[in-house]
Design a protein around this nucleic acid. Structure first.
Lengths: 363, 363
DNA sequence: TACCTTCGCTAAACCGGTTTAGTCGCCGGT
DNA sequence: ACCGGCGACTAAACCGGTTTAGCGAAGGTA
């Protein structure tokens, strides 16, 4: 821990010590050309000697901006960091923020309330991750009046958004399993922030994609074939153990996140189930880790890091525009839609002959 | 993007509208008992109707605290998030911060300068990750006067620290390979923030552990057997390809991070090298992903999340103490040392007979 | 009736900077 | 000798809240 005692050196202290006004000290730091060279140098000397650092909060207040953007998540950070997807997304946001000299603040519900967290958040704008229209906390965000870019949710009125083709990607995943001959399929869904799976959230869109593909060949997904867990390795592991102990004996698993898929892989191993011979697993996201799992995961690729980068870029662009007094309603709003594609690796295969027979016999 | 136009509602606006003083409005929010019930209610109504939210920066300024802690990293966030270690560590810090109602700000070099980033950082204290004494930016931190807890580096004078037994863990890793019969070994080192590998940083301590174990059986590590790369999957992959093309034909690889180890695994696969039959790989950290690699990684366990939790706890405790005016030098400083242990999975085995002969013949 | 409290509220100081609008002295020009 | 202009610096307002000191009216007490 640091010096508990000696109070902070303020600009007035420096001014007094150097025998000048507060304004002069401020100029010495920010606009040295408004002072004579000698005076500026002397003030800087004195300041350095006294260990003066302008108080960042005070500076923010008069500057009227924080030079910081926020990443807002509807879940607790303790959970959210457990999903490698989030790290990758943050990586994208962070790299752009950094490049433009912006800090990065993580905003998550404080004691369960996003509104409360937002009230404390000293940011110029926020990247909102996965909060669909209709989320009860959405209003807090709009009311905050902060510029925001919405990611993984349809654009809110007045805000820009970045979306990927979740439904299409999910459809590809399901069609892949179907083409291999799978008919007994369960879905490991990521936990939506709140509300029903039928909502406009990520999980809802992906589920729709799965369903579309499945019903096209007459396979209907009942609600006890859809398991909702946090998008983490542990979540996926627990989910598949639950699947198994519930008596389900699927030949294929559609996971809405790679982290969950990795967990399913682990659970299968613990249960002595061989992948892909006895069980096929498809993930979602195409995180770097998928190339190193045993076996490497078949998954749906989406440009996660790029999503973060584009979100940050759009947000900063908006800040720049609003700072330059460009108030006209001509704002470039809109939705940026990014594509998804299936990446086939080795976690999927045709169901074994035996299981295939079982399936046929059951019909 | 949001409302570009209408200016923010300030406390004075609410006061005027409600026909009271600014103080009354402030009380209505913070100390309603100092107002009559009706007045408080009326003010709150007016404020709600006008969409008033106290300006967080102004509040910080007069409160004299930010209710935010920072995580400081010597590398760019764009890099640092690529290491799953960091996500796990952040998870620990975040969960404790959240629980205590604190926000989390990431502080990384701005345009190459940590000092500059620190000057902008509105935090009450910081968790410093992996900055060893002697780092040129260390002074900026001390000069900032902010309470700090140092993680993965020896305690700085006046600050607390959290360390794990890196050297011991590394020794275990090396001894494991030696016991299996390996003698041709390369090291994939994590890039230290700056400075030499011989420093007091994480990489330095682990290298010392490797060396101690190796020289005990007469194996010396030359500098061209130590490869320094970022602690990421890509880093490890690139490193091992470099090893190979440099003509090195090790039977064992000691990696200072699991992420790098996963990368080596990938590189080996690309090169058609079987693990562990032809190549043994040991990681470091024991991240969740190690259980799902192909094959599962032998690695050195360290309590990463716990490190984050303890760092945050120590920091908050210090803040609490200094806030309560507990200025005496009796502060509980010190270093918390956490243990490491080897976790043997399936990425290590005795070198193949052929290679063993080669080694013997070469002597 | 005079005096003391208590209640409800306000004016003004304060947090620590930045910025605007001057002030002052000096120099050069005429 | 007078004026204009410029360079160097300062006083004061301002950012938007919180907090302290204190005021006036209502109510209670002697």
């Amino acid at each position: 821990m640091a010096n508990g005692a000696e109070p902070r050196v303020r600009i007035a202290d420096v001014a007094r010590e150097a025998g000048v006004s507060k304004a002069a000290v401020s100029f010495a730091f920010n606009k040295p050309d408004r002072l004579s060279t000698e005076t500026a140098a002397r003030i800087q000397d004195v300041a350095a000697r006294m260990g003066y650092r302008p108080h960042p909060v005070a500076r923010m207040l008069s500057a009227g901006q924080t030079t910081t953007i926020g990443i807002l998540t509807p879940q607790a950070l303790g959970q959210v960091f457990a999903n490698p997807f989030f790290a990758l997304f943050s990586e994208g946001v962070a790299s752009v923020a950094e490049e433009h000299g912006f800090g990065l603040l993580f905003i998550s519900p404080l004691h369960g309330s996003l509104a409360r967290a937002l009230d404390r958040a000293t940011v110029d704008g926020i990247v909102v991750l996965g909060l669909a229209e209709g989320h009860p906390e959405m209003d807090s965000i709009r009311r905050s009046g902060l510029p925001a870019v919405v990611v993984d949710a349809p654009a809110w009125p007045g805000h820009s958004a970045i979306l990927v083709d979740d439904e299409g990607g999910a459809r590809l995943a399901a069609e892949h399993l179907l083409a291999l001959g799978h008919r007994e399929i369960v879905v490991i869904a990521v936990e939506p922030a709140l509300g029903e799976l039928t909502d406009e959230g990520v999980a809802g869109r992906r589920l729709r994609g799965y369903r579309t593909a499945l019903s096209a060949v007459g396979v209907e997904l009942t609600s006890d074939q859809v398991f909702r867990v946090p998008a983490t390795i542990e979540g996926g592991e627990a989910a598949f153990l639950r699947v198994w102990s519930a008596g389900e004996r699927p030949t294929g698993v559609l996971c809405m996140s790679d982290a969950a898929a990795a967990g399913v892989l682990g659970a299968a191993r613990r249960l002595g189930i061989r992948v892909p011979e006895e069980l096929s697993i498809v993930g979602f996201d195409d995180l770097p880790l998928t190339r190193f799992t045993d076996p490497p995961l078949t998954t749906v690729h989406q440009p996660v890091r790029q999503k973060g980068e584009e979100a940050a870029t759009m947000l900063l662009e908006a800040l720049r525009r609003s700072a330059s007094g460009d108030q006209d309603r001509q704002r470039v709003l809109g939705t940026r839609l990014l594509g998804t594609r299936l990446v086939v690796r080795r976690s999927t295969a045709a169901p074994s002959g035996e299981r295939r027979l079982e399936v046929v016999a059951a019909r």
